[in-house]
């Protein structure tokens, strides 16, 4: 049994036939070819699969594809239509906030959602929000530095 769903991904309308049991993550990766969204645990702990649904950071391994019908989804590929890195991505690079790169899409989408809503967040808030995403390589310190350094690009009035 499959169901036809329509939703918006990275600003473009999509229409796919999916099994009702298919996760949004698998739909994005295998039906839509957006493999930037990664699956690290498939049980909602590691955060690698985080995408932005209607502005909120969401674990796409815990959301069914059919639940995305009619919604607006942004993946790591959709953070910028530009060839250049976004200021947040450039800040990650500058601070060496990634090594193997596997958790990175989830970190970037989580941080983007946070800074979009709270451009003036402090270090404790950044750590608190990022604590839902596991990184095995960096020890988190450069990731927190990168996110704090990117606040100005989101309209932070500074500390």
């Amino acid at each position: 049994m499959s169901m036809k769903i329509e939703f918006e991904v990275n600003g473009k309308p999509v229409s796919v036939d999916v099994d009702p049991r298919l996760s949004l993550a698998d739909c994005l990766r295998y039906d839509l070819g957006l493999t930037g969204t990664h699956l690290g645990c498939e049980h909602g702990v590691c955060g690698a699969c985080t995408v932005i649904v209607n502005g909120a950071a969401v674990r796409s391994c815990l959301m069914l594809a059919v639940q995305a019908a009619g919604e607006k989804v942004v993946t790591v590929e959709g953070l910028s239509n530009d060839e250049a890195l976004t200021p947040l991505q450039a800040s990650f690079r500058k601070h060496h906030a990634l090594q193997c790169g596997f958790c990175t899409p989830g970190m970037v989408t989580t941080a983007h959602a946070l800074l979009t809503h709270e451009p003036d967040c402090d270090e404790e808030r950044v750590r608190d929000v990022l604590s839902g995403n596991i990184c095995r390589c960096t020890g988190y310190i450069p990731i927190v530095e990168a996110v704090l350094d990117a606040r100005s690009a989101y309209g932070s009035k500074g500390e």
């Binding site: 990766r29 295998y30 957006l34 493999t35 930037g36 969204t37 990664h38 699956l39 993946t75 790591v76 590929e77 953070l79 910028s80 890195l85 991505q89 990650f92 690079r93 500058k94 060496h96 990634l98 790169g101 596997f102 990175t104 899409p105 970037v108």
Partner: peptide, 21 residues
């Protein structure tokens, strides 16, 4: 030196084995 790898990883353009079809 800022890493070459980062340019693809940060934009979701890395190719890990489960990305292959």
């Amino acid at each position: 030196i800022e890493r070459i790898e980062d340019l693809r990883f940060l934009r979701g353009r890395g190719t890990y084995v489960s990305d292959l079809t």
